[in-house]
Design a protein around this nucleic acid. Sequence first.
DNA 1: GCCATGGCTAGTA
DNA 2: GCCATGGCTAGTA
Length: 122
Amino acid sequence: MRSKPANDTLNHQAVYDLIQSVPAGKVTTYGDLAMALGNPGASRAIGRILGQNPNPIVVPCHRVVMSDGRLGGYANGILRKKELLEREGLAFAKGSVNNFDQVRIKLPSSTHGLIRKSGIRS
DNA sequence: GCCATGGCTAGTA
DNA sequence: GCCATGGCTAGTA
Protein backbone atom coordinates (compact mmCIF):
# COMPACT_ATOMS: atom_id res chain seq x y z
CA MET A 1 0.00 0.00 0.00
CA ARG A 2 1.21 3.34 -0.93
CA SER A 3 -0.37 5.41 1.82
CA LYS A 4 -0.69 4.55 5.43
CA PRO A 5 -2.21 5.97 8.58
CA ALA A 6 0.67 5.42 11.01
CA ASN A 7 1.26 8.21 13.46
CA ASP A 8 4.41 7.00 15.16
CA THR A 9 7.83 6.20 13.86
CA LEU A 10 10.96 4.67 15.33
CA ASN A 11 14.18 6.40 16.20
CA HIS A 12 16.82 4.37 14.38
CA GLN A 13 19.59 5.34 16.72
CA ALA A 14 17.54 4.11 19.66
CA VAL A 15 17.22 0.75 17.91
CA TYR A 16 20.97 0.47 17.45
CA ASP A 17 21.61 1.58 21.04
CA LEU A 18 19.29 -1.05 22.40
CA ILE A 19 20.83 -3.88 20.40
CA GLN A 20 24.14 -3.11 22.01
CA SER A 21 22.71 -4.37 25.29
CA VAL A 22 22.50 -7.91 23.91
CA PRO A 23 25.59 -9.85 25.06
CA ALA A 24 27.40 -12.55 23.09
CA GLY A 25 25.74 -15.91 23.52
CA LYS A 26 22.30 -14.36 23.86
CA VAL A 27 19.68 -13.17 21.36
CA THR A 28 16.64 -10.96 21.14
CA THR A 29 13.89 -10.67 18.55
CA TYR A 30 12.59 -8.07 16.15
CA GLY A 31 9.32 -7.97 18.04
CA ASP A 32 10.99 -7.62 21.44
CA LEU A 33 12.93 -4.62 20.17
CA ALA A 34 9.78 -3.06 18.77
CA MET A 35 8.05 -3.66 22.08
CA ALA A 36 10.88 -2.24 24.16
CA LEU A 37 10.82 0.87 22.00
CA GLY A 38 7.12 1.36 22.59
CA ASN A 39 5.92 0.42 19.12
CA PRO A 40 4.73 -3.17 19.29
CA GLY A 41 3.58 -3.34 15.69
CA ALA A 42 6.92 -2.33 14.26
CA SER A 43 8.74 -5.65 14.23
CA ARG A 44 8.99 -5.75 10.49
CA ALA A 45 10.21 -2.17 10.40
CA ILE A 46 12.93 -3.13 12.87
CA GLY A 47 14.21 -5.69 10.42
CA ARG A 48 14.28 -3.13 7.69
CA ILE A 49 16.17 -0.69 9.90
CA LEU A 50 18.77 -3.32 10.74
CA GLY A 51 19.31 -4.03 7.07
CA GLN A 52 19.97 -0.36 6.44
CA ASN A 53 23.14 0.65 8.01
CA PRO A 54 24.38 -0.87 11.16
CA ASN A 55 28.03 -0.75 11.90
CA PRO A 56 28.30 -4.48 12.50
CA ILE A 57 31.35 -4.00 14.71
CA VAL A 58 29.52 -2.04 17.35
CA VAL A 59 25.93 -3.10 16.69
CA PRO A 60 25.58 -6.89 16.92
CA CYS A 61 22.50 -7.16 14.75
CA HIS A 62 23.26 -10.83 14.13
CA ARG A 63 21.86 -11.40 17.63
CA VAL A 64 18.38 -10.43 16.49
CA VAL A 65 16.25 -13.39 15.39
CA MET A 66 12.61 -14.19 14.74
CA SER A 67 10.06 -14.65 17.51
CA ASP A 68 9.89 -18.40 16.86
CA GLY A 69 13.67 -18.88 17.10
CA ARG A 70 14.35 -19.02 13.37
CA LEU A 71 17.19 -16.95 12.02
CA GLY A 72 15.50 -14.15 10.14
CA GLY A 73 17.71 -12.25 7.73
CA TYR A 74 21.16 -10.77 7.56
CA ALA A 75 22.79 -8.31 5.17
CA ASN A 76 25.76 -10.61 4.64
CA GLY A 77 23.62 -13.72 4.31
CA ILE A 78 22.01 -15.86 6.96
CA LEU A 79 24.82 -18.37 6.66
CA ARG A 80 27.17 -15.73 8.03
CA LYS A 81 24.69 -14.87 10.75
CA LYS A 82 24.53 -18.48 11.81
CA GLU A 83 28.32 -18.75 11.90
CA LEU A 84 28.61 -15.71 14.13
CA LEU A 85 26.02 -17.04 16.55
CA GLU A 86 27.63 -20.47 16.64
CA ARG A 87 30.95 -18.85 17.43
CA GLU A 88 29.23 -17.26 20.39
CA GLY A 89 28.11 -20.62 21.66
CA LEU A 90 24.64 -21.06 20.19
CA ALA A 91 23.52 -24.22 18.44
CA PHE A 92 20.88 -24.78 15.79
CA ALA A 93 18.53 -27.52 14.74
CA LYS A 94 16.33 -27.34 11.68
CA GLY A 95 17.06 -23.65 11.25
CA SER A 96 16.08 -22.68 14.79
CA VAL A 97 18.09 -21.72 17.84
CA ASN A 98 18.31 -24.47 20.45
CA ASN A 99 16.95 -23.63 23.89
CA PHE A 100 15.48 -20.45 22.55
CA ASP A 101 13.79 -19.43 25.79
CA GLN A 102 17.01 -19.68 27.79
CA VAL A 103 19.12 -17.62 25.42
CA ARG A 104 16.50 -15.00 24.66
CA ILE A 105 17.12 -12.07 26.95
CA LYS A 106 14.68 -9.56 28.32
CA LEU A 107 15.33 -6.08 27.01
CA PRO A 108 15.37 -2.96 29.15
CA SER A 109 12.46 -0.76 28.12
CA SER A 110 13.51 2.43 26.45
CA THR A 111 11.76 5.77 26.51
CA HIS A 112 13.23 7.66 23.61
CA GLY A 113 12.42 5.11 20.95
CA LEU A 114 9.31 6.75 19.61
CA ILE A 115 9.14 9.88 17.58
CA ARG A 116 5.80 11.56 17.35
CA LYS A 117 5.13 12.66 13.83
CA SER A 118 4.23 16.30 13.56
CA GLY A 119 1.44 17.78 11.53
CA ILE A 120 -1.21 15.24 12.23
CA ARG A 121 -4.68 16.65 12.15
CA SER A 122 -6.93 15.61 14.96
C1' DG B 1 5.18 -1.57 -3.67
C1' DC B 2 8.75 -3.90 -1.37
C1' DC B 3 10.58 -6.18 3.05
C1' DA B 4 15.85 -9.19 7.91
C1' DT B 5 8.11 -9.94 11.20
C1' DG B 6 4.42 -11.83 13.79
C1' DG B 7 -0.02 -13.52 15.06
C1' DC B 8 -3.96 -15.95 13.86
C1' DT B 9 -6.87 -18.95 11.06
C1' DA B 10 -7.65 -23.07 8.07
C1' DG B 11 -7.17 -27.49 6.88
C1' DT B 12 -4.45 -31.71 6.55
C1' DA B 13 -2.33 -36.24 8.95
C1' DG C 1 -1.21 -18.96 4.18
C1' DC C 2 -3.09 -14.44 4.95
C1' DC C 3 -2.65 -9.75 6.13
C1' DA C 4 -1.60 -5.63 9.29
C1' DT C 5 2.30 -2.87 10.22
C1' DG C 6 6.16 0.72 9.57
C1' DG C 7 10.03 2.45 6.88
C1' DC C 8 11.86 3.08 2.52
C1' DT C 9 12.88 3.60 -2.64
C1' DA C 10 11.87 3.84 -7.37
C1' DG C 11 9.84 6.13 -10.68
C1' DT C 12 6.02 9.06 -12.56
C1' DA C 13 3.83 14.07 -12.93
